[in-house]
Computed example of a mutant assay.
Amino acid sequence: MDLFAIDTSLTPIPLEDGELAWLAQLPLPWSNADVMARLMQETDWREETIVVYGKRHLQPRLSAWYGDAAYTYSGLRLDPAPFTPLLETLRTAVQDATGHRFNSVLLNLYRNERDSMGMHSDDEPELGPAPVIASLSFGAARTFILKHKHKKKTVRLALTDGSLLLMSGSTQRYWLHGVNKTTRPLQARLNLTFRKIG
């Protein structure tokens, strides 16, 4: 792969009441397939239980939390494992591309078309008033859906293999986001959301 042939500048995506930017391929020293294979093998994957409307449910995906601080959402507390050398390299690449610093990463493995992520905002207090979240994807493309909390507005984005999506500004305040199940058979998708825990 010729890194010098890749456009490494993030492209803004117009979004009312929020800020999105997109990079089709994050420059990496390995192929996307190699990174995904290593992440699948090296990650301590877990099937966590969360609380939704007072009821406990198994998450419809596998996840893992790495970084410097614990993180709590939906009644689930995640204690961090230390960054691996591979995750450290990915974090550096994401920081170079975005100009933002991150101290933690949540990995989600969507094993097939039946795995999903419910609509939510990453607005926990430890993320600060205007969270900056960088979403790096590998494997099968999935449709990322954003829905405005107060207006009838929906945005759909295809998160493709090797792509980076940056959410910042007031995005988490005004928008929900998620990934739906599909009826079309899909291979695995692996997503890393880098964030800074205060």
Results as ranks from 00 to 15, higher is better:
44 D>Y: 14
47 E>N: 13
66 Y>K: 09
90 L>I: 12
161 D>C: 12
40 M>I: 15
65 W>V: 05
122 D>F: 09
28 L>D: 11
57 H>S: 00
196 K>A: 14
143 T>Q: 08
32 N>P: 08
41 Q>P: 09
107 L>N: 02
126 E>C: 06
121 S>R: 03
9 S>Y: 08
157 L>H: 09
170 S>V: 02
181 K>E: 13
189 R>G: 10
30 W>L: 12
186 L>W: 01
17 D>W: 07
122 D>M: 10
117 M>S: 04
96 D>S: 09
65 W>D: 02
115 D>L: 09
197 I>R: 00
133 I>Y: 03
90 L>E: 03
150 H>N: 10
163 S>N: 04
23 L>K: 01
188 A>Y: 00
158 A>T: 10
129 P>I: 11
67 G>H: 08
105 V>N: 05
102 F>Y: 08
158 A>E: 13
78 L>N: 00
26 L>V: 14
133 I>L: 10
138 F>C: 12
168 S>T: 03
167 M>T: 07
191 N>A: 13
20 L>Y: 07
88 E>A: 15
67 G>Y: 03
42 E>F: 07
159 L>H: 11
113 E>C: 11
90 L>W: 01
37 A>K: 07
198 G>K: 11
65 W>N: 01
13 I>T: 07
104 S>K: 00
84 T>A: 03
72 T>F: 06
22 W>K: 11
167 M>Y: 02
26 L>Q: 11
196 K>F: 14
88 E>G: 08
164 L>F: 06
190 L>C: 13
93 A>S: 15
5 A>D: 12
22 W>D: 06
49 T>V: 12
149 K>Q: 02
3 L>R: 11
181 K>C: 09
6 I>T: 14
26 L>I: 11
56 R>V: 11
162 G>P: 13
189 R>N: 05
85 P>I: 05
91 R>E: 03
185 P>A: 12
126 E>R: 05
1 M>C: 06
21 A>T: 07
